[in-house]
Design a protein around this nucleic acid. Structure first.
Lengths: 198, 198
DNA sequence: TATTAAGTGGAGCGATGCTCCGTTTTCCTG
DNA sequence: CAGGAAAACGGAGCATCGCTCCACTTAATA
């Protein structure tokens, strides 16, 4: 708690060099392990891979969610920053929304178990949930509002609901060629569309 | 394996009375525990509640999924049987599909963690997955086909995809008043709808 | 009643999450 | 450049849980 801010930003400079080195080693190891074993990988394994003790991981990242957010922080930021950009360069607000959701889905789909973790009621993941929401909800809301204002979609859909739904739809697509989240998400967006004025 | 069929039907009569009694005790205890602690509740707890040893549970229900399906078997059957009935009595095939999905969602939403278990990649739940699919997929397919044939919805959506999506959308709604799966499912259905012929 | 096989229960093993605390390392100060 | 305080470390240790194994109990049968 005292050594790291919850959202996983790089810590302030007042740390010992060994602490900083270990922190980075843990981050690197976690990134590797997450790819093969998902974000639920045993802490022991990450610690072993990083060549540190378990306590070191817990000290730097009190919660599993802190570790996960730290590992994926750059990609989450990129996704957040893409929102306004897409809104500016896309053909329509609806198109921007669609393309932004594509980015979000790409991100979720390539991280084993991330979508599962996101919706988890497990307290260990509460901070992950919060970080995603804090960072991406406003972006999603902005896109939704713009699409509503342009008359592309009906009003009344809240960003939280939409993002939760998309996250949920991305769960468990691995090892199941019969299930393609993107098709359903496209359907969802289709349903969101404003029926053309009579 | 030798004492129970995978889908959780009542076993054939050739059992000792104590075995039959214990089986029922386990079923009752599991039903109670599932309500409060979800379908992930520790086997130990269910065993304690039923007043039996853990091995007794594992002997009757080799897999957690077997226990879960046995507990909910009647409701799954009811849902399966409702399909054709709705198709006969609803205003349109699309209406039947909508009402059937309502039933399915009601079922999922009232069982803590059931939706989670359904999509789980955990091998322990493979049989649960199979049972749901075997029993409900044909029903869903029939409703979809009818709706397509009536021109209510576009062709090309496979039952498996739809059911997986609905199941996924039902995950994690508990303790979160901001998330209502039904709204998103309605949106999904809306997207499925055939745009009225020009 | 005696025999037997079906049935039972819980100790025990391995895996995992998380903490506690004695030890080591860094860094600052005199 | 010592020397000591504080920061950081690491892994043993406890708790929980899934699942198995096997000595014991009990119902059915001859």
């Amino acid at each position: 708690m005292a050594t790291d801010s919850p959202a996983g930003e790089p810590p302030p400079g007042g740390q010992r060099v060994d602490a900083r080195r270990n922190r980075q080693a843990v981050l690197d190891a976690a990134a590797e392990v997450f790819v093969t074993s998902g974000v639920d990988a045993p802490i022991r394994r990450i610690a072993a891979r990083a060549g540190v003790g378990m306590a070191t991981i817990y000290r730097h990242f009190p919660t599993r969610a802190d570790l996960v957010t730290a590992v994926y922080r750059h990609q989450i930021e990129a996704c957040a920053e893409a929102g306004p950009r897409l809104l500016a360069e896309a053909d329509s607000p609806f198109d921007a929304l669609r393309r932004w959701i594509d980015l979000f889905v790409d991100f979720l789909v390539t991280k084993h178990g991330l979508a599962d973790a996101l919706r988890s009621e497990d307290d260990r993941f509460a901070a992950l949930h919060s970080y995603f929401l804090d960072r991406l909800l406003p972006v999603c809301g902005q896109l939704l509002d713009a699409a509503v204002e342009a008359g592309d979609i009906e009003a009344g859909t809240r960003p939280y609901e939409l993002m939760r739904g998309i996250g949920n739809l991305c769960i468990g697509h691995e090892n199941d060629p019969r299930y393609d989240p993107r098709r359903l998400i496209a359907l969802l967006l289709q349903g969101l569309r404003q029926p053309p004025a009579p």
